[in-house]
Computed example of a mutant assay.
Amino acid sequence: MNTNVQKPKLKTSAMIASIASEGQRTQSAPFGHALVELAARRPEVVGMTADLAKYTDLHIFAQACPERFYQMGMAEQLLMGAAAGLAHEGAMPFVTTYAVFATRRAYDFMHQAIAEEGLNVKIACALPGLTTGYGPSHQAAEDLALMRAMPGMTVIDPCDALEIEQMVPAVAEHDGPVYMRLLRGQVPLVLDEYDYKFELGKAKLLRDGRDVLIISSGIMTMRALEVARELARDKIDAAVLHVATIKPLDTATILREAGRGGRLVVVAENHSAIGGLGEAVATELLRAGISSPFRQIALPDAFLDAGALPTLHDRYGISTSVMTETLKGWLG
């Protein structure tokens, strides 16, 4: 694992999509390197993209395996249809684009050509949720809701570089279509401090705590761990349950942790408050008759602003500092 300590200058441009904090450890292009390693063992693996290899780290695969790389141009519907055709012939396509282009522009092609057929296509999508400042054209705030609703589709929201590295071979072992959010470039490295091992369909308790249980996915698990450390300064004990697999949901673990009683349950997600992890968890708690106090940290049901990511994360309540103050207010 190639890691380095990044100390980036503060960025203000909407074009900067780094989520690493100053001084945070990162790993370069974990998806691209993991796919190259997988391809060395699995000759059926191919890489496909819609003119975004450089921006989804698939260029690393293209350089290592040029004969197994397909550049489909700016045509996402064609990308999904071609991936379905290759899967029909026994290939295992790893398809990359931006999350907005896959879930909004090519949804019907994934639905009819890939999911209905149960094909072995792995769809890895960059710029999930609020990880770009470009505005609504590029912010995929509804992708999990859309993909959760697609029958037969497995949905994953990884936290960091380690999880992406482990996720790639794990989804290759799964027979069927997978939608996975993708962090690209210099990706934060967090979970190695918690002896973490990704398992498809399994939630993992990263730390325990008596006062509040934070259930989170994706980059919000990184934030939740930071918040837990901040809360500890005020003698508030926070547990963090990381739910990387959004579908199928690890209902048993979620209900066990939420049902322990005496704790506020908070779901934190980099997604619209509608249709994502929060509503999925709330539904399971209601069905099970668990009545723990419940709150949600999520993006609003709105078209989000363009701008610098730190500003936007503060504005929409998903930065570490704002989340910490929000939880303090809820805990009284």
Rank of each mutant, 00 (worst) to 15 (best):
H33M: 05
K202M: 05
L327C: 02
R210N: 15
P158L: 09
V168L: 03
K7Y: 14
E142T: 14
M72V: 09
A115C: 14
L249V: 10
R233W: 00
P169H: 03
V36G: 05
Y70D: 08
R223C: 15
H242C: 12
K7D: 11
P8R: 13
G209M: 12
Q27A: 12
R104Q: 09
K204R: 15
M150D: 08
R256L: 05
L35M: 07
P8A: 03
L79A: 00
L299S: 08
K122F: 02
H59V: 01
M15S: 15
A239T: 06
A238W: 03
E76Q: 07
L127V: 14
G317V: 06
I297K: 04
H59T: 07
V155G: 01
V243I: 13
D108P: 09
A258D: 12
H88L: 13
M147H: 04
G152F: 08
S18C: 15
M147L: 09
H271F: 13
D314H: 13
M150P: 14
A238R: 06
P158W: 11
G218H: 02
L285F: 01
H111L: 09
P169G: 13
P93E: 01
L331F: 08
A91E: 04
A170C: 00
C65P: 01
Y196K: 00
V5R: 12
G81L: 04
Y70W: 09
N4K: 12
K197G: 13
R295C: 08
Y134D: 03
L309R: 06
Q112I: 14
A126T: 12
I156T: 10
N4R: 14
V266C: 11
D301W: 01
G317R: 10
D250T: 11
I297R: 01
